[in-house]
């Protein structure tokens, strides 16, 4: 095996840095062309509705089931901790705030990246490897407008809605465990929640977070599919990259957004 000199390592490091910058540039041009480029894609509304179904509606099951279970677990854990301090009546407020501020947007984005993001990458990558994208281009239809744009908009629209559904069913799951199973008084469960959850501070900030995550996750997913090497191995690598990059981006951005929204700077 060939030894790598220090100078060679520096060169490889620099090369990798330049590659990252080039990819960032390519992905930005790709996004701007898809969203704001000229040219028609035929019946845009019909294409968008089709994608809203496959990206949004088809993700509903995993979001609802996960939301219910996470709400139930939150309620159980919250109850056992709060009961030590005699504050089990506050479990409703804890479940609601945790879901609306953090877990709703973040877990939805992570599940969305795994379910819809990977599917978007694999679908577009497969279209590329079977020359369907080239074929569209040669028919005179811009694949960025016909294939990419509807998927981007479907992701932007559906993920915040999915995050809201996640939070709602999570709260419902939490209420079921706390009120029906653990015997927390129903009136204080809901009243505490109502008095402590602020619309702007908690609900709106959660929606803003999920909008940002929707933008980043969908962008990563469609770009990875469009930019992948058109082979089976290339598509599988791109799909993995989508889940890894999107998850890391969501967790990193969540910290920044939380610091900006709730940090006292």
């Amino acid at each position: 095996m060939r030894k790598t000199s220090t100078l060679e390592r520096v060169r490889l490091f620099g090369r990798a840095g330049l590659d990252v910058l080039a990819t960032l540039g390519r992905s930005t041009v790709f996004l701007l062309r898809a969203l704001f480029g000229r040219g028609s894609s035929g019946n845009s509304l019909q294409l968008l509705i089709k994608q809203l179904y496959s990206v949004g509606v088809m993700s509903l099951a995993i979001i609802v089931v996960s939301g219910v279970f996470i709400g139930m677990v939150l309620s159980l854990q919250g109850f056992s901790i709060l009961a030590k301090y005699g504050s089990e009546q506050a479990v409703g407020q804890m479940v609601a705030l945790t879901l609306l501020r953090e877990l709703g947007p973040v877990v939805t984005a992570l599940l969305f990246a795994g379910r819809a993001g990977s599917a978007l990458t694999a679908e577009i990558g497969n279209m590329k490897s079977t020359e369907q994208l080239s074929s569209l281009a040669m028919i005179g239809v811009d694949p960025l407008k016909y294939i990419v744009a509807p998927r981007l908009w479907a992701g932007f629209i559906s993920m915040p809605l999915l995050a809201m559904i996640f939070s709602v069913v999570g709260i419902w799951g939490g209420a079921m465990v706390a009120v029906d199973w653990l015997g927390v008084y129903e009136g204080s469960f809901w009243a505490n929640m109502q008095s402590s959850v602020a619309f702007r501070e908690d609900v709106l900030n959660g929606v803003i977070k999920s909008l940002v995550f929707a933008f980043v996750v969908t962008w990563i997913a469609v770009f990875q599919g469009y930019d992948c090497e058109p082979t089976s191995e290339g598509i599988s690598r791109a799909t993995t990259r989508t889940v890894v990059y999107a998850s890391l981006a969501v967790l990193g951005l969540d910290f920044i957004l939380t610091a900006l929204m709730f940090g006292d700077f």
Partner: peptide, 16 residues
């Protein structure tokens, strides 16, 4: 994209 309306291509895989 406008010019390509004057062209047709038969790809190796068919690309349906």
């Amino acid at each position: 994209f406008d010019m390509r309306k004057q062209m047709g291509v038969l790809f190796q895989s068919g690309a349906l």
